[in-house]
Measured scan of single mutants.
Amino acid sequence: MSGNGNAAATAEENSPKMRVIRVGTRKSQLARIQTDSVVATLKASYPGLQFEIIAMSTTGDKILDTALSKIGEKSLFTKELEHALEKNEVDLVVHSLKDLPTVLPPGFTIGAICKRENPHDAVVFHPKFVGKTLETLPEKSVVGTSSLRRAAQLQRKFPHLEFRSIRGNLNTRLRKLDEQQEFSAIILATAGLQRMGWHNRVGQILHPEECMYAVGQGALGVEVRAKDQDILDLVGVLHDPETLLRCIAERAFLRHLEGGCSVPVAVHTAMKDGQLYLTGGVWSLDGSDSIQETMQATIHVPAQHEDGPEDDPQLVGITARNIPRGPQLAAQNLGISLANLLLSKGAKNILDVARQLNDAH
Rank of each mutant, 00 (worst) to 15 (best):
P208I: 13
P127T: 11
G144D: 04
S284G: 12
A320N: 00
A44N: 13
Q229P: 07
L148C: 09
D286H: 09
L161Y: 11
H95K: 02
Q181L: 09
L338W: 01
S141N: 14
A151Q: 14
L68S: 10
S288T: 09
V301N: 00
E80T: 12
Q229Y: 14
E310S: 05
T102D: 06
A191I: 00
L134W: 06
T190H: 15
L97T: 15
D230M: 15
P138A: 13
L329M: 15
T78E: 01
L68E: 08
G203R: 04
V124F: 07
L174E: 04
D91I: 04
L154P: 01
S141F: 08
E162H: 06
S288K: 07
L148Q: 12
R195K: 03
A214P: 09
E80Y: 02
R246P: 05
V143K: 04
G236D: 15
S262W: 00
I323F: 10
A122S: 09
T298P: 05
K157H: 13
R173S: 01
E80A: 11
L206G: 06
L188G: 09
P119A: 12
E82W: 06
P127Q: 14
A226D: 11
L254V: 10
P313G: 10
S45P: 08
R156T: 12
C261P: 00
E258V: 15
E82I: 02
P119H: 10
V215M: 10
H300S: 08
E117T: 06
Q217L: 01
E162T: 03
L161E: 01
N322A: 00
E117H: 11
F108W: 14
D352P: 14
T41R: 12
S165M: 06
Q332P: 05
Q275P: 07
T66I: 14
G281R: 09
L64M: 08
K79P: 09
Y277R: 11
N118C: 14
L193H: 04
N169E: 06
A185T: 14
V316H: 03
R156M: 14
R201M: 01
L285M: 13
H120P: 03
L170S: 06
N169A: 06
I63H: 06
G111V: 04
G203T: 01
Q180A: 14
V39K: 07
I71N: 10
H126A: 11
Q153I: 03
D307N: 14
T145V: 10
T136I: 14
H120Y: 13
Q194D: 10
A339G: 15
P106I: 09
I336S: 15
T298I: 02
L174H: 08
S262A: 15
A270E: 14
F51K: 05
T294N: 14
C114L: 10
L42P: 02
T102G: 09
L278C: 12
G280Q: 03
G287A: 04
N171A: 10
R246S: 13
R195V: 03
K74C: 05
S69L: 09
P105F: 14
L104S: 10
L341K: 12
K74D: 05
N358S: 15
F108N: 08
D65G: 09
K227Q: 09
M295Y: 15
G131R: 10
R321V: 03
L234M: 07
I248P: 01
G335F: 10
V353H: 15
S337N: 14
I323D: 07
N340D: 12
S165L: 04
G274R: 07
D359Y: 13
L329P: 00
